[in-house]
Amino acid sequence: MPELRTDRLLLRRWRESDLEPWAAMNADPEIREYLGDLLTREESDATVAAMKSDFEERGFGWWALEARATGAFLGRAGLDVIGEDMPFSGVDVGWRLTRSAWGNGYATEAGRACLAFGFGVLGLPEILASTTVDNLRSQAVMRRIGMTRNPADDFEDPGVPEGPLRRCVLYRAPAEPRTAHRGT
Rank of each mutant, 00 (worst) to 15 (best):
S44W: 09
D54C: 13
T184V: 15
T70E: 09
I31R: 13
I82Q: 08
R172C: 01
E162I: 09
A152E: 15
P158A: 11
Y171F: 15
R172T: 05
A67M: 12
M86I: 00
L170K: 14
N26T: 02
F117Q: 03
T179L: 13
F55M: 13
G183R: 14
A64H: 05
V141S: 07
A113K: 01
G146R: 04
G61F: 10
D7N: 09
A173L: 10
H181T: 12
R5Y: 06
Y171C: 06
M147A: 02
A77T: 05
I31T: 15
E43I: 01
A24N: 08
L115P: 05
N104M: 03
G59Y: 06
W14V: 13
A129K: 11
P151A: 10
Y106P: 00
R99W: 02
S138P: 08
A129T: 11
P87M: 07
N104Y: 05
T184F: 11
R32L: 03
S53Q: 14
N135W: 02
R99I: 02
N150Q: 11
L38F: 04
M1G: 07
A173Y: 08
A152Q: 12
A173S: 15
Y34N: 15
G105E: 04
V169R: 14
Y106S: 04
G105V: 00
T184K: 14
G111T: 08
L122R: 04
D80M: 15
G123T: 01
L65Q: 09
G183H: 12
G159V: 04
S100P: 01
R68W: 01
N104T: 04
S138F: 04
